[in-house]
Design a protein around this nucleic acid. Structure first.
Length: 209
DNA sequence: GCGACAG
DNA sequence: ATCTTGTCGC
């Protein structure tokens, strides 16, 4: 795998990322995707929920062989293929919350942006660790993440323990992304991502037996 | 070269 | 992410 060429491709595709909301309308449907691993096996799960009624609408699990190790800055190689399959398996996906970054990335093209461009869907990056950038002045429960005078995302303190880092994936504004993540969160973390994480691990353990 | 490093 | 038991805290 030629990472230099892939890095250049990321820079090119980053120019196609749309940092605007889809025309006048934001879907109440949110989807969380996550993947668990054991040896050379990956188990991925997608959970679809309605942000207003809070009910689970759909879910999907896929198990397949790992295609790549984790390479910092190239998370798409590891989780891209299985998540694309997951998204395809859903009848309706709404806005997709991804366990990782969107434009909060060295080349402004993290996994969430990759999936957004590749599948032409609305995506939001939700990371548990800060990948890069400095924190701007905080408002109490949030602060901008900045690098080279460019706002790349926001850190949210939705609980007392641990912040999360939100960034634009594709076809959304940062403000809307923050709003959706906040609304879908329970105890500081999006419930669809929590459920997808749990279900992918459960599926993996079932498979191993 | 060294260390840090989304998951 | 994963390897892993008991244990501290809400």
């Amino acid at each position: 795998m030629d990472l230099t060429a892939l890095a250049n491709e990321q820079k090119d595709l980053a120019k196609l990322v749309r940092k605007y909301d889809d025309p006048s309308y934001t879907s109440p449907i949110v989807t969380g995707v996550d993947v668990a691993y054991a040896k050379d096996i990956a188990a991925g799960c997608a959970v679809v929920s309605n942000n207003y009624t809070n009910e689970i609408i759909d879910s999907s699990v896929i198990i397949k062989e790992i295609e790549s190790d984790y390479i910092h800055g190239f998370f798409q190689l590891r989780e891209g293929p299985i998540i694309i399959e997951l998204i395809r398996s859903l009848e309706m996906q709404g806005i997709i919350l991804v366990d990782g970054n969107g434009i909060l990335h060295p080349r402004r093209f993290g996994l969430a942006s990759y999936l957004g461009i590749k599948m032409d869907v609305q995506t939001i990056g939700v990371a548990k660790k800060l990948m890069l950038g400095e924190m701007g002045p905080g408002t109490g429960d949030s602060a901008e993440i900045i690098q080279d005078r460019e706002v790349l995302g926001k850190v949210l303190w939705l609980n007392e323990r641990k912040p999360i880092y939100v960034s634009i994936g594709h076809r959304i504004t940062l403000d809307t992304a923050v709003k959706i993540v906040s609304e879908s969160s329970v105890d500081g973390y999006p419930e669809v991502l929590r459920r997808a994480h749990k279900m992918s691990k459960e599926a993996l353990n079932r498979y191993k037996d």
